[in-house]
Amino acid sequence: MLAITSLLNPQSAARINAIIKSLEVEFGLDDVQATPDPHITYQLAGVRKLSLLKAVLQDVARHTQPFSAFTTGLGVFPGPNPVIYIPVLRCDALNDLHRRILKATAPLCLRTDKFSGPDCWLPHISLALHDTTPDLLGPVLQYLNQQTFNMRLTLNNLTILRQEGDLFVQEKNFSFAGHKQHIAPQLF
């Protein structure tokens, strides 16, 4: 499976990495560091041809202007290994980008995860996952509750992440070019 993401701008990434490092120091939580680049995931997918995926994502990026998205609060996906995250607030630009990614990649995907669909998708930035436990959840949230998580993110790229051993590394990064799709005028 590949992850189609947007990497965070350097200032936001540094802030997230500092929080993640503090969770390692305080609680020993470090599994989230398997993806060293903080990001927002739009879709997890298995694809037929990586070269075709790169081409369609490059086209989406070429027709996308950089935009701002905002975060606030904390969230938890429950389970035996709860995921602790910062929610990213959905806005028109983020929803539009997600919709265009799904539409462009649909013919290429062998499979996707069930949470990538537009009705289930919850954009977020993971702070802890896989090595958490229900017993740690209370102390970790109490620790994190001493901070605020209101950030303005500048989203300016699409990035494919692929698994390499225990890590998820950048396969390809496409900067938003800021051009709108050209629609030819109709002549009557």
Results as ranks from 00 to 15, higher is better:
residue 43 Q to T: 02
residue 45 A to T: 09
residue 47 V to G: 09
residue 47 V to F: 07
residue 48 R to S: 10
residue 48 R to L: 13
residue 49 K to R: 14
residue 49 K to N: 13
residue 50 L to D: 09
residue 53 L to V: 00
residue 53 L to S: 06
residue 54 K to E: 13
residue 54 K to R: 12
residue 54 K to V: 08
residue 54 K to P: 03
residue 55 A to D: 09
residue 56 V to W: 07
residue 57 L to P: 00
residue 57 L to R: 01
residue 58 Q to I: 05
residue 60 V to C: 07
residue 60 V to H: 10
residue 61 A to I: 05
residue 62 R to C: 06
residue 63 H to L: 15
residue 63 H to C: 15
residue 64 T to L: 14
residue 66 P to V: 01
residue 66 P to T: 05
residue 66 P to N: 08
residue 67 F to I: 07
residue 70 F to A: 07
residue 71 T to P: 01
residue 72 T to Y: 06
residue 73 G to V: 03
residue 77 F to C: 03
residue 77 F to E: 06
residue 78 P to W: 15
residue 79 G to P: 11
residue 82 P to I: 08
residue 82 P to V: 07
residue 83 V to R: 05
residue 83 V to N: 11
residue 85 Y to I: 02
residue 86 I to M: 00
residue 91 C to G: 11
residue 91 C to W: 00
residue 91 C to N: 13
residue 94 L to F: 08
residue 94 L to N: 09
residue 95 N to V: 02
residue 95 N to L: 09
residue 96 D to P: 13
residue 97 L to M: 08
residue 99 R to K: 15
residue 100 R to H: 00
residue 102 L to P: 02
residue 102 L to V: 02
residue 103 K to C: 10
residue 103 K to S: 11
residue 105 T to A: 02
residue 105 T to Y: 02
residue 107 P to Y: 04
residue 107 P to T: 14
residue 108 L to D: 09
residue 108 L to F: 04
residue 110 L to N: 13
residue 110 L to I: 12
residue 111 R to N: 14
residue 114 K to M: 11
residue 116 S to V: 01
residue 118 P to K: 07
residue 118 P to A: 13
residue 118 P to F: 09
residue 119 D to W: 03
residue 120 C to Q: 03
residue 120 C to Y: 06
residue 121 W to R: 02
residue 122 L to M: 03
residue 123 P to F: 02
residue 124 H to A: 06
residue 124 H to R: 00
residue 125 I to F: 00
residue 125 I to T: 00
residue 125 I to Y: 07
residue 128 A to V: 04
residue 128 A to W: 06
residue 128 A to Y: 04
residue 129 L to R: 12
residue 129 L to P: 12
residue 130 H to A: 08
residue 131 D to K: 11
residue 131 D to H: 06
residue 131 D to M: 05
residue 132 T to D: 06
residue 133 T to K: 13
residue 133 T to A: 06
residue 134 P to K: 15
residue 134 P to S: 14
residue 135 D to F: 14
residue 136 L to K: 09
residue 136 L to P: 04
residue 136 L to V: 01
residue 137 L to R: 14
residue 137 L to S: 11
residue 138 G to C: 11
residue 138 G to T: 15
residue 138 G to K: 15
residue 139 P to A: 09
residue 139 P to K: 13
residue 139 P to I: 12
residue 139 P to V: 15
residue 141 L to Q: 05
residue 143 Y to W: 13
residue 145 N to Q: 12
residue 145 N to L: 12
residue 146 Q to Y: 05
residue 147 Q to H: 14
residue 147 Q to D: 11
residue 147 Q to E: 11
residue 147 Q to R: 11
residue 148 T to R: 10
residue 149 F to G: 00
residue 149 F to M: 01
residue 151 M to K: 02
residue 152 R to S: 11
residue 152 R to C: 12
residue 152 R to V: 11
residue 152 R to I: 10
residue 152 R to H: 10
residue 153 L to I: 01
residue 154 T to Y: 11
residue 154 T to V: 08
residue 155 L to V: 06
residue 155 L to A: 03
residue 156 N to M: 06
residue 157 N to S: 13
residue 158 L to A: 01
residue 159 T to A: 02
residue 159 T to K: 02
residue 162 R to P: 05
residue 162 R to Q: 09
residue 163 Q to S: 11
